[in-house]
Design a protein around this nucleic acid. Sequence first.
RNA 1: GGCCGGUUCGUCUAUCGGUUAGGACAGCCCCCUUUCACGGGGCAAAGACGGGUUCGAUUCCCGUACCGGCUACCA
Length: 514
Amino acid sequence: MSRKIRVRFAPSPTGGLHLGGVRTVLFNYLFAKKQAGDFIVRIEDTDQTRFVEGAEAYIFDTLAWCGIIPDESPLHGGPFAPYRQSERKAGYRQYAEQLVKDGYAYYAFDTPADLEAMRVAFKTAENPSPQYNQPIREKMRNSLTLSETETKELLAQGTPHVIRIKMPLHETISFTDMIRGEVSFNTSQVDDKVLLKADGMPTYHLAVVVDDYLMKISHAFRGEEWLPSAPVHLLLWKWLGWQADMPEWAHLPLILKPDGNGKLSKRDGDRLGFPVFASDWTDPKTNETTTGFKQHGFLPEAFVNLLAMLGWNDGTDQEIFSMEALIQAFSMDRVHKGGAKFDYEKAKWYNHEWIKKSTAADLKSYVSKIYTDKAIAVTNEALLLKMIDAVKDRCTLLNDFVQQGSFFFQMPESIDTAAIQPKWDDKKNQFFVELIRAYELSSVWETHDLEREFKELAAAHQLKPGELMLPLRIMLVGGKFGPGVFDIAAAIGKTETVNRIKLVTGMLEQGART
RNA sequence: GGCCGGUUCGUCUAUCGGUUAGGACAGCCCCCUUUCACGGGGCAAAGACGGGUUCGAUUCCCGUACCGGCUACCA
């Protein structure tokens, strides 16, 4: 075990980065960084029909937001470039040809129509999806059933063809998965996967093995959905003569939908009202935007934290981890075998914890951006910091700072007069008229003085402060929420405080007359 | 259908054969708070089922059930 740790994340650029995808990246990254290894991003764009413009840039932007910077990638360069499989196309064919030469693979000339016909012809109740496997291949058009001259002729004519792996009969293939332990397969159950497509591009199966070998990948981690094709990859490593360099494997559990069953999908988020992508993704074809955790008001630290805890823990009760702490604590053998249902409530809790834990200075740029987007003018930076400190405990998502704090900078957008109108009377009005006068004459403007003046005046009017605090709060804040009223008054200043009291008493008086 | 994988409170999970099965989210209650939160305290809530192995199984083995993944010239 002296070889350099090198892991890779190999996404195909087909759209937004899904929770499960980011978690796969994260586990790769944590594993590598814990052991001072390299983290590589390789773009698996071998399916040209599924290529989506902008998806690759999106992946790097999103990883950067999470605080994950690859050591090697098409964007960051590296000694094993190129890191896009489409640019490595020319290299794959030789390996497929070598496998044919060695008797481990063969040319297949079946057209899509032939394959379709085969599936229909062999479909039975017991076998609803017939595979291109050992018994079937003998009935198809390939270099195993055709004579050598026929094959050569077809090849020479440029007949479209693929190269398929020739799965052996009744062999047991087993390997040790770092999470699941020993897993074994009978090769008779695996079909003859296409290795090289008719367009000359490799399929995932060939490309992943060739590139992992060429890029000296030491550990290959991927989602559980890949487990069934592991025997194909194992055989390829063996047949290509690279067995000694084969990476160690781990198949990560899936992230499941919160209700019902099955893998979490983008549709579940739309349906249940929470993000599934890490950050906003706009499909260039439909122009449709799917919101991400980032734009939903999540802190990257919280997003990374909640993802890490989905299927992993360090064995203690600790739940809040920074990236550094995760790197320290992470180990693949503590990753679960079973899938985890995603719980958005718990996800929000992580974010709330991180907001509470962050300082006003940490949060300032996020809040500023949101306020700018909402056209809330912040002219006083000290007040912004004061506001963040005052309200962050009540913000679960960053966007909550709008509702919880914008009244520090502008008149509340709506004023819940209905909450106080029924109990409004002349006595209260009189009190506030005098409060305005008292505050206007005030020489000091501090929380405690404001509170003292308020209470003394209430006593003079033979009113309970409790009956007057809520009206004052509504006047300043607009609703039944927020930090202490006198703190708010102190923060927004005399002019603004007096103006708001005047404005709302006016509204209440008018309301009382109608 | 076949193959592979999985199964502890509603959810995320702890437990290296011996525990009153612990924590967290959500829920409910109380305290704090002349608002809303934060905070503090409490309640309720789990080993899929059946067989073994063992002095003793949530833990190890087998079977069953259920759930999931795969079964494309997609990854």
